[in-house]
Structure formats: structure tokens, C-alpha cells
């Protein structure tokens, strides 16, 4: 039952990852820990024509995802210590003093949001830039986007402005966790399944 959410216009996200790095800068994260990740979805068919030219059916788009501060957070449910918890304003945070580094939230989250910090032995995660938001500032990632495709706000306002779509291929079924993530679909997403699209930048989003 989160109050705040993100909006991502996947039709115009370039995949530049400025959001990812602005987040790393704000949170002082070493390489390997990404509170925000940009997934590259690609599917295609290439065919040589009789003329000797090339034809393609192709879809490609990017999904910039932090933590979705889900209304039904699987991570919170899974966490044995209650380190992972929901604040009153709906933001899902990790209390570093409680976390035992069991990594169970990492399994439970269908969005890859919890990020394990090997050095500290605890889990870390996008905290919605709670300090900024409470100060009245947008989260670092949102204000960084050169394409202006990221937004944040109270869920009700986001729904009012963009409708209540919380998924695009191949994001998990939103009924699992009710992510506070609202998406404008890339027009190519229609063909994604048909073209057997998948996330092709694994080495960029995971260790």
C-alpha cells in the first residue's frame, strides 16, 4: 500500500543510464551495486531478401527500474528480521541495523531491486531518496533523466495523469506485488512476445 510511485515512459527511454549513475552518486555505491538498473529488452528477426538487402522485424526498448515500493511488497513479507519494512508513507526501506544479509528479499523481489553489499554484509536498496522527497526535492534519478521520462509522485496522481498500467513485457505480473511503478509502453512492446524478446544486457544489470 505504497503512497508514492515512479512513472517511466519506456517509449522514450534511451537507455543512457544517467538515472543509474546519479543514484550511485547520491548513495555512494561501488561498482556492482545498482539501486537503479536499466534493462534492455530486444527481440528480432533478420532476413535476407531476394534483392540482397536485409529486412528486419525488431523491437528494442529500455526499462529503468529502481525499487517499486510495492503495495504488496514480497520483500517485506519475506524478510525474517523486519529489516525490510514499509514506512507510513508507503516507502519500503531497509534498516541496516536489523539486516542479517540473508538475501532472502533478493529472491523474493521479482524486480531485482535489493542489492547485496558484500563489504557490509547487508542488503541495500533504493530508498526512494526519502530524504530528498521529504525535503520537497525529487529523487536523484528522476531529476537526472535527460529525456525526462521518469516521474514520481503520489500514486493517485500518477494514475490520474498516466493511467494505471504497471507492466510491460517482460515485467512480472503486477498482481504479484502491486508495484508502484507506472509505465507508458513502448509501441514496440506489442510485438515483443511474438519476436521472443528478452533482456539482453545481463552483464550490465547484474554482477
Amino acid at each position: 500500500m505504497s503512497t508514492f510511485g515512479f512513472f517511466c515512459d519506456t517509449s522514450a527511454c534511451s537507455g543512457c543510464k544517467t538515472c543509474q549513475v546519479s543514484c550511485k552518486d547520491k548513495n555512494d555505491l561501488d561498482a556492482g551495486i545498482r539501486f537503479r538498473r536499466v534493462y534492455e529488452v530486444v527481440g528480432a528477426n533478420w532476413n535476407k531478401t531476394d534483392e540482397g538487402a536485409w529486412e528486419h522485424d525488431i523491437v528494442a526498448y529500455n526499462l529503468s527500474i529502481g525499487c517499486n515500493h510495492c503495495e504488496n511488497p514480497a520483500c517485506v513479507k519475506a524478510c525474517p528480521t523486519k529489516a525490510m519494512h514499509a514506512e507510513l508513507d508507503g516507502m519500503i526501506l531497509i534498516d541496516p541495523n536489523k539486516c542479517i544479509g540473508c538475501r532472502y528479499c533478493e529472491w523474493a523481489c521479482p524486480y531485482g531491486a535489493p542489492q547485496y553489499n558484500k563489504l557490509k554484509g547487508i542488503m541495500q536498496k533504493c530508498d526512494f531518496c526519502r530524504d530528498y522527497v521529504l525535503e520537497g526535492k525529487p529523487p536523484a534519478c528522476v531529476s537526472s533523466c535527460p529525456m525526462r521520462v521518469l516521474e514520481f509522485g503520489p500514486i493517485s496522481q500518477l494514475i490520474e495523469k498516466h493511467g494505471d498500467n504497471r507492466s510491460v513485457y517482460p515485467l512480472p505480473d503486477p498482481s504479484i506485488t502491486r508495484p508502484a511503478l507506472f509505465i507508458r509502453k513502448h509501441p514496440g512492446a506489442k510485438l515483443a512476445k511474438k519476436l521472443n524478446a528478452s533482456i539482453i544486457n545481463r552483464e550490465e544489470v547484474k554482477e
Binding site: P80, T81, A83, I100, Y104
Partner: peptide, 17 residues
């Protein structure tokens, strides 16, 4: 566990975990 010092806390969420 990454941080076993906190291990006893792992009993605190039998409600859902």
C-alpha cells in the same frame, strides 16, 4: 548470513516470513 551478529532478529517475523 552476511551479518550474523544480527541473527537473533531473524525470529521476529514468523508472521509472514
Amino acid at each position: 548470513l552476511g551479518n550474523p551478529t544480527n541473527a537473533p532478529r531473524s525470529l521476529s517475523n514468523i508472521g509472514t516470513s
